[in-house]
Amino acid sequence: MVQGFTGTEGTFHATQMIEYGTCLVGGVTPGKGGTMHLDRPVFNTVDQAARATGADVSILFVPPAFAADAIMEAADAGIRLVVCITEGIPVQDMVLVQQYLKGKATRLVGPNCPGVISADLCKVGIMPGFVFRKGHIGIVSKSGTLTYEAADQVVKAGLGISTAIGIGGDPIIGTPTREAVALLMEDPETRGIVMIGEIGGNMEADAAAYVKKEGNKPVVGFIAGQTAPPGRRMGHAGAIVGGAEDTAAAKMAIMRASGIHVVDSPADIGKTMASVLRER
């Protein structure tokens, strides 16, 4: 289902998702319950929508002031996967959301992310579907267009995409790099993983520790922001270099030491994955 179904963004991307083949069964816009939109029913609450349609995945196009509440509403209704596209949610709201989700079966992806796509099967996100040709490479990334770039390179290198997970560029996100990489490690459709990080935080270092310990598939990594000056926020709320251990170079060193094939140039992601797979 789509939360924020009848708004401009919700309508546009719901249409795109339906065209891609996603099984979209309805949506929620408080106050518009009982009407139809894109030939699908609109409900007032997530609870009503879930009970009436059986939906267990929700994608959110809810404005930042109301997004945290909408995520908790979805979790409360037992939605298994919540993908939050919304950019600009206050940090304090996300601290509360993260606490609320503890102990619940709901997985949150995002916020401030492009969503999740399993090539040729299902798209719960805003990415251009045609870029993600079917194959066996999984992608985990904090950013939108850089994910498309990586997918495009992987496809042009003669490979293709299994599932791409855009985890989001905010300081607090529901599914950190480590968990997304772990999901792809366990996915039988995925034979190699592209992991794209950014300056700020220690999620890539956590993921690298996991890859070193549990990794059973090759991982190609890239960290955006090698040239970013310290203390300046680079667009994403989370992309800001703090202390000396927080730089792109430090992250890349940790990733290399964990057996990840780190590329310096974003232009080399696809061909590096191809050559790593050939060597195996």
Binding site: S141, K142, S143, G144, T145, L146, T147, E149, G169, I196, E198, I199, F222, A224, G225, Q226, T227, A228, R232, M234, G235, H236, A239, A248, D264, S265, P266, A267
Partner: peptide
């Protein structure tokens, strides 16, 4: 896109230039 913008800056540096903007 912010991530691609940072990646583009990095690529400029690797190509012998220095990024003047994000």
């Amino acid at each position: 896109g912010a991530g691609l913008a940072m990646a583009t800056m990095d690529m400029i540096k690797l190509s012998g230039g220095e990024p003047a903007t994000f």
